[in-house]
């Protein structure tokens, strides 16, 4: 079965992205496909490479990037939500005259259409948020 995952909260403040991560991992282990993981609202904060959590804590951005790389996941950060919250890839940073970009490896920035498209293409869509 093909599953689409929506993550509406950033890491650490809410458990939502932890739950979404463990769910996605379990779905892959069961042989399901992941159409896309779409990060919306504060969920876009999962996609910054600049987080430095304490050594003894989990690093959610890294976990997503590694899971993405291992399984070829499409990790999409919503462009409108990302711009509000200061998550930029190199192209966006250049376009808006910012001196740095921070999108983590394995993530890409794209539009809300990617969320709707995932809903259309997947057999199931699951939302994680607050």
């Amino acid at each position: 079965m093909q599953l689409a995952i929506v993550v509406n909260e950033g890491p650490y403040t809410h458990q939502a992205s932890d739950t979404a991560y463990h769910f996605t991992k379990a779905a892959l282990e069961k042989g399901h496909g992941i159409t896309r993981v779409f990060f919306y609202h504060d969920g876009v904060n999962n996609g910054t490479r600049l987080t430095v959590p304490p050594q003894d804590d989990r690093n959610l951005q890294k976990l997503w990037s590694e899971l993405g790389e291992k399984h070829g996941l499409d990790l999409v950060v919503c462009i409108a939500a990302a711009q509000r919250r200061g998550i930029l890839d190199a192209d966006e940073a250049r376009r808006h005259g910012k001196d740095a970009s921070n999108l983590a490896p394995g993530f890409r920035i794209s539009g809300l259409g990617q969320l709707i498209e995932a809903g259309i293409e997947a057999d199931r869509l699951v939302v994680f948020g607050d």
Partner: peptide, 20 residues
């Protein structure tokens, strides 16, 4: 249920509604 059970529940039902 564990996370695998969560995945099974999603697959077994036509839709999932999150009461956020």
């Amino acid at each position: 249920v564990d996370y695998g059970g969560f995945v099974d529940l999603v697959a077994q039902h036509a839709r999932t509604v999150a009461w956020l």
